[in-house]
C-alpha cells in the first residue's frame, strides 16, 4: 500500500468551504455551535474535535503578483450582465455604481470601493491534520490509541482513547482537540473508511478547483514541485512548499498533508519551524536524572547529619 496524502495548493483555493461541508457530512461530525467570529468570513476559526477541515481567510493589504485588478472584475461582471441590461439590470452590484458603464472602454479613475480594494489580496488555505511522518500526538499517546495506518496516516481509535488530553498539547499544529462532552480526542482520519473502500477522501472529492489534491505522496510531491515552478515562471516569486519532505521540515520529517503557500506560514496560522516534542526530550530525561539523584543525595545528607546514635 503506497503512502497517500494531501497536497493543498492554496493558490487555487477560492474559499468556498466545500471541503468543510463535505467532511462534516461524510464523517457525520456534529455542528460547532454556529458562532460568529466577527473578524473575517471565517466563522470556523480553527481545526477542532468537530472540525477536521478548516478554510482560513487571510486578508492582506498587499497584492499578489499576477492577480487581476478590481476593474478586471467589474468589467468581467459588466460583460456577463450586459445581456440583461435591456431588462433594466445594468447595475446589479455596488461596484458598478463606482463606474459609469459608458466609460468602460476608456480608462477611468477608480471609485471609492475600488480604491479600497486596490493593493489588497485574499489568501485562502484549507487546513487539515498534517499526518506528520514523526507525529507528536502518536508518540505522546499513552494508551496506543493513536496509530499509523497502512496508508501512512495517523489515526485515533475512538474505542481505545481514554481522553487523557496529552496528544492535544503534543501536537505542534494545534490540530487534535478533546471534545468536552465526549471526553475523547478527535481529528481528521484521512477518511480511513473511504480509503478502505478505494475512494478519495471527502474533502478532496468535493474540492471544485483541485486545490485539495489527493494521491500517493511521491506523485504529489512531483506535482507540487512542478506547480511551484509554474507559479514562479508567472511571477509569483513567493510561492513555496510547506512541509513537503524531511528536508523542508526536519522537525516533523515531512508532512503527509503539505501545502503550497504564498506568504509566511504565520500569516496562515502555521508554525514556521514545528518540531515533534519527543525529539527534544532525551535531554529533559537526563535533567530529571540529575535532579532526582541530587535529591537522593540530599536525603542521605539530611538523615546522616541529623542522626543520633
Amino acid at each position: 500500500m503506497p503512502e497517500v496524502g494531501f497536497f493543498t495548493d492554496t493558490t487555487l483555493c477560492i474559499g468556498c468551504k466545500a471541503c468543510e461541508v463535505a467532511c462534516k457530512q461524510w464523517n457525520q461530525l456534529p455542528d460547532d455551535g454556529f458562532e460568529f467570529t466577527g473578524m473575517s468570513y471565517d466563522n470556523t476559526g480553527q481545526l477542532g474535535a468537530s472540525t477536521w477541515r478548516h478554510v482560513a481567510f487571510v486578508e492582506r493589504p498587499a497584492e499578489l503578483p499576477g492577480q487581476g485588478s478590481p476593474r478586471d472584475g467589474v468589467e468581467a461582471g459588466h460583460r456577463a450582465f450586459a445581456e440583461l441590461a435591456p431588462l433594466g439590470q445594468a447595475a446589479p452590484t455596488s461596484l458598478l455604481h463606482d463606474i459609469a458603464p459608458t466609460q468602460l472602454r476608456t480608462p477611468v479613475s477608480l471609485g471609492p470601493t475600488q480604491e479600497a480594494l486596490a493593493g489588497f489580496s485574499w489568501l485562502f488555505l484549507s487546513d487539515v491534520c498534517k499526518h506528520c511522518e514523526r507525529a507528536g500526538c502518536l508518540e505522546a499517546c499513552p494508551t496506543g490509541a493513536i496509530l499509523r495506518t497502512e496508508f501512512g496516516s495517523v489515526y485515533v481509535q475512538p474505542d481505545v482513547c481514554n481522553g487523557c488530553g496529552y496528544c492535544v498539547s503534543a501536537c505542534p499544529f494545534g490540530v487534535v482537540e478533546r471534545r468536552a462532552d465526549d471526553g475523547r480526542a478527535w481529528k481528521c482520519t484521512l477518511c480511513y473508511d473511504r480509503l478502505e473502500g478505494g475512494l478519495v477522501p471527502a474533502c478532496a472529492k468535493a474540492c471544485p478547483t483541485a486545490s485539495i489534491q489527493f494521491g500517493p505522496l511521491d506523485a504529489l510531491r512531483a506535482r507540487a514541485a512542478e506547480r511551484v515552478d509554474q507559479l514562479r515562471a508567472r511571477g509569483v516569486e513567493q510561492a513555496y512548499l510547506y512541509g513537503e519532505d524531511a528536508a523542508s521540515q526536519p522537525g516533523t520529517q515531512g508532512l503527509h498533508a503539505f501545502f503550497l503557500l504564498c506568504d509566511e506560514p504565520e500569516v496562515y496560522g502555521l508554525p514556521p519551524d514545528p518540531v515533534v516534542p519527543t525529539a527534544k526530550i532525551v535531554r529533559s530525561w537526563r535533567a530529571m536524572a540529575t535532579g532526582v539523584l541530587s535529591l537522593a543525595a540530599l536525603a542521605l545528607g539530611a538523615v546522616f547529619t541529623a542522626r543520633r546514635v
Binding site: S169, C171, K280, I281, R283, A287
Partner: peptide, 20 residues
Amino acid sequence: ANTAVPVWQQTRNTLPILFA
C-alpha cells in the same frame, strides 16, 4: 516539557529538576 507548549518546551531542562 514533552509538549508543543512554548514555555514548557523552552524550559525543559529546568522543569524536571524544579519539580523534583
